[in-house]
C-alpha cells in the first residue's frame, strides 16, 4: 500500500497493463477526495497537535471475489481507483506473486530516486575539524 501511495498514476496503469486480463472492477465506494488532519507531536515526542490538513483520495473496489482499498495523499481519484484494483488483485493468492513482480519495477525506481537524494544530501554533510593553536 505504501508503494501504491508513492507510485504515480502512470506507474499503476503500467502495473495493471502487465496483469491483464482483469475482470471488471465494481465500485464499492465511488472514488472521493477529502481531508485528513495531519497530527504532529509537541516537541516531536509529546502529546498530539494538529499541523494542518492534507488532501486525500480514496477508493474501494470489488474485483471478482476480492475487494481492494486505497487511501492516498492528493486529489487523483483515478489513481486511487487503480491502486484499489491493484490491492484487490493482491488479495487473490493466485495473483499475489504477479502483482508483486509488477510492482517491483516501481519499487526499484522509487528506491533509486531516494538513493540519489540521500547521496546528494550526504555530500552536504559537515565535517568539523578543530584548529589547533600553536603555543609559540
Amino acid at each position: 500500500m505504501a508503494l501504491c501511495a508513492a507510485a504515480t498514476r502512470s506507474d499503476l496503469q503500467a502495473v495493471l497493463g502487465t496483469l491483464a486480463p482483469i475482470s471488471p472492477a465494481a465500485d464499492l465506494r465511488v472514488p472521493e477526495t477529502g481531508l485528513v488532519m495531519v497530527q504532529g507531536r509537541m516537541g516531536g515526542d509529546g502529546a498530539p497537535f494538529n499541523v494542518g490538513e492534507a488532501t486525500v483520495s480514496r477508493a474501494a473496489v470489488q474485483v471478482g471475489e476480492r475487494s481492494g482499498f486505497a487511501y492516498h495523499l492528493g486529489r487523483d481519484q483515478t489513481k486511487a481507483r487503480l491502486a484499489a484494483i491493484v490491492d484487490a488483485l493482491w488479495q487473490d493468492d493466485n495473483r499475489r506473486a504477479a502483482v508483486e513482480t509488477a510492482l517491483a519495477e516501481v519499487e526499484a525506481r522509487l528506491e533509486a530516486e531516494a538513493a540519489v537524494r540521500a547521496a546528494q544530501t550526504a555530500a552536504t554533510r559537515v565535517n568539523f575539524f578543530t584548529m589547533v593553536r600553536g603555543d609559540d
Binding site: E32, T33, G34, L35, V36, M37, V38, Q39, G40, R41, G44, D45, P48, N50, V51, E53, A54, T55, V56, R58, Y71, A114, R117, A118, T121
Partner: peptide
C-alpha cells in the same frame, strides 16, 4: 471537502532527512 479523519501522529524522528 469532507473530513475523513485525523492522521496517526507523525514520527519526525523517522524523517528522511534532507
Amino acid at each position: 471537502l469532507p473530513r475523513f479523519g485525523q492522521s496517526v501522529p507523525l514520527d519526525t524522528s523517522a524523517m528522511a532527512i534532507e
